[in-house]
Design a protein around this nucleic acid. Sequence first.
DNA 1: AAGTGGTCTAGACCACTAT
DNA 2: TAGTGGTCTAGACCACTTT
Lengths: 248, 248
Amino acid sequence: MVDDQNITIDRESYEPAYAQLVRILIGQIAAGVFRPGDRLPSEAQLCERYGVSPMTVRRVVNILADQGLVTTERGRGTFVRPLELGTATFDLGRLQQLFRDEDQSTVKLLETRITSATERVARKLAIEAGDRTVFIRRLIFQGEEPMLLHREHVIYDPSRPIVEAEMEVTALRGLFSGGGGSDLKRGDLTIETTLLTEEEAALLHSEIGVPAFRLEHIFYDFEDQPVSWGWFICSGDRLRFTAAIGIP
Amino acid sequence: MVDDQNITIDRESYEPAYAQLVRILIGQIAAGVFRPGDRLPSEAQLCERYGVSPMTVRRVVNILADQGLVTTERGRGTFVRPLELGTATFDLGRLQQLFRDEDQSTVKLLETRITSATERVARKLAIEAGDRTVFIRRLIFQGEEPMLLHREHVIYDPSRPIVEAEMEVTALRGLFSGGGGSDLKRGDLTIETTLLTEEEAALLHSEIGVPAFRLEHIFYDFEDQPVSWGWFICSGDRLRFTAAIGIP
DNA sequence: AAGTGGTCTAGACCACTAT
DNA sequence: TAGTGGTCTAGACCACTTT
């Protein structure tokens, strides 16, 4: 297995040549053939060794660099990167999965009412205090268990159809994993920690004072105007974020 | 600005043609020229319009797809993706920055002693209960303020030099942002919430019961054997994770 | 049949690094 | 000067979707 001189690209395979070579090189790094700090064979050597064109090798090296496995240094070579904690990235896959299938999760609309923006809400939404906003509270269940509490302040503007769409229960699902939010340009998200309040604990079938995640979001339209500000609350013992670094 | 028929690729620029075209297309999506759900011009049209080769356009579309801005559908076209919450990714940039400059942060070794692995530690490190491990506690300061508390259990194996290296105070910095950990193949990380214990609160100059982040890590060597298991504790009011989705 | 994205080639030229 | 990564070309062929 360490002697890999017989490994070649299978031109008959449905797996493209570049993908095969990516797999081969990652395998060799994982097997310790190339150690952190080591220089990979030059691109010309890889062309020769595996019988592919320079462009294909270039693409392969780009992919490895994008994945953080190697770094390229112009004029010197391509080197295997040592493990770095700072390269870890966490995603919302766990939450996204919650919204994937309609059977798995249900969304219950707790409250929706028109209010006057407080000073804090107005500042977040870049409007004047006292302007009308819509306040929405939702509870998202996984099966029978309440998983997420969602609070949201949406700018109330009858000329913008997004307000009506946002109040729809299904809008949340679309926003999370495709389809909805087609009038939104960008969003800012932050993850914080907090303690469950009495109200939150009751709704989430948990205890007051339990540590929880708070996922805050602001969405902007194509005029870069804030459209909604809100946050999800989830008991800490029902959610964790995971990431893997290095070679899988 | 909406009429962009005069925008061209500058072949004299130091910015590569593909990067210029990426910038141009992102700008047009941001400006609303192409809306979520819209089809981009075909790759052949983009070649014609900007005077670049098919491979260059292909590369550009790949980059946009990697960034999650568009999806490609074979035989149909390339489409602008609507905003999706689930695409958000959070990184440890904030923590990594802590370890960037030696002046900004200092690491204080609180404790390091050889112990017998408890049942829990042994299970995490895939060893037998009672086997020798090294327990390390560190405190990481930002300026004068204690920011992070680090606890770690490392397998004690004199034949492996990594144990000695791990005990070094500087090892932490290297692990976070390059250089160190060259004998580690991969790592698994999880982010959880917790409450500060009395001991943690005292060390972090905070209050007992305050919500906090807990960043757990396990590192594996090239034989896929666990090498160390540990976690960072950070008071919740001193750390947040941020992410941006959509067009910046 | 026409149009679309996806892969790949066999070179070219350039900027940079090491010797 | 030789070797390295980085960009780019002008085609080719393929699989797929739509008309």
